[in-house]
Amino acid sequence: MLQCLSPSRRMVLRISWLGRKLQLYLFCGPGSGKGTQCSNIVEHFGFTHLSAGELLRSEIKSGSENGTMIDSIIKEGKIVPSEITVKLLQEAMVKSENDKFLIDGFPRNQENRLSFENVIKISPEFVLFFDCSEEEMVRRLLGRNQGRADDNVETIRKRFRVFEESSLPVVQYYDSKGKVKKINAAKPILEVFEDVKTIFQSYGPKAA
């Protein structure tokens, strides 16, 4: 059962249908390998990657009234309301000519999940759970040498706790419905993606 696992050992991919549009939702504990696996899924299976964080930042850079409001909310240290992020995701999906989407960074909590499902009217087909120890994720974050100011042990562990408190209940919700599938993300990148490909084989490779 999921309750027996370390709560910060998390990277989750949720798959669901919106009409004929296949959506894959990505959740992860920091350092679980999100960026690499996102790139692999996009490259090999033809998904469009939509990052909630990037959409918010792009809206801010646009200088729109909505972007100014989002910027103010973030600068005040508040959480951007779910309806704003849901609207940005919807607009991005409509603009795309693709019918398969990898949505990253949303929903982050149960309130996000409820808001998204109430608007989009979806229920995930299953949850793909990437399991990686907290110690391994710390090692990866400290060793990635990207010059990030938040890559120190104390801040990293705080990020784990935030993920545990906010996103873990979403995982547990779907686990209670028997929809969680688990993959060992502590293995080398190529081996992890081989496991991912097994899950995705029914969707076929990206069109040439």
Rank of each mutant, 00 (worst) to 15 (best):
L2M: 15
C4Q: 14
S8H: 05
R9S: 13
V12D: 03
I15Y: 15
L18G: 05
L18W: 05
G19S: 12
L22F: 03
L22Q: 07
L24M: 13
L24R: 06
L26C: 11
G29Y: 01
P30T: 08
G33A: 05
T36F: 13
Q37T: 10
Q37C: 06
Q37Y: 10
C38L: 11
C38F: 04
N40H: 12
N40K: 12
V42N: 13
E43G: 14
H44M: 12
F45S: 02
F45T: 02
F47D: 02
H49V: 07
H49K: 15
E54A: 09
L56R: 03
L56K: 10
S58K: 15
S62D: 15
N66W: 04
T68Q: 15
M69G: 02
D71Y: 15
S72R: 13
I73Q: 07
E76D: 11
G77T: 02
P81A: 09
P81C: 13
T85Y: 03
T85N: 01
K87Q: 05
K87T: 10
A92I: 07
V94F: 09
N98F: 12
K100F: 08
F101Q: 02
D104M: 06
R108C: 05
N109I: 02
N109M: 03
Q110F: 15
Q110P: 00
R113C: 13
F116A: 03
E117N: 08
I120K: 07
K121H: 09
K121V: 08
S123H: 10
F126P: 06
L128V: 14
D131C: 05
C132I: 05
C132Y: 01
S133N: 03
S133Q: 01
E134D: 09
L142Q: 04
Q146C: 11
G147S: 08
G147T: 12
R148W: 04
A149G: 07
D150W: 11
D150P: 01
D151W: 12
I156F: 00
I156M: 03
R157T: 08
K158P: 03
R159M: 04
R159N: 02
R159D: 00
R161V: 08
V162C: 09
P169R: 15
V171Q: 00
Q172Y: 14
Y174G: 02
D175I: 06
S176F: 05
K177R: 13
K177I: 13
G178K: 10
N184E: 10
P188D: 14
P188E: 09
I189D: 13
E191L: 11
V192E: 01
F193Y: 08
F193I: 03
V196K: 03
K197R: 15
T198L: 11
T198S: 15
G204I: 07
K206D: 04
A207H: 10
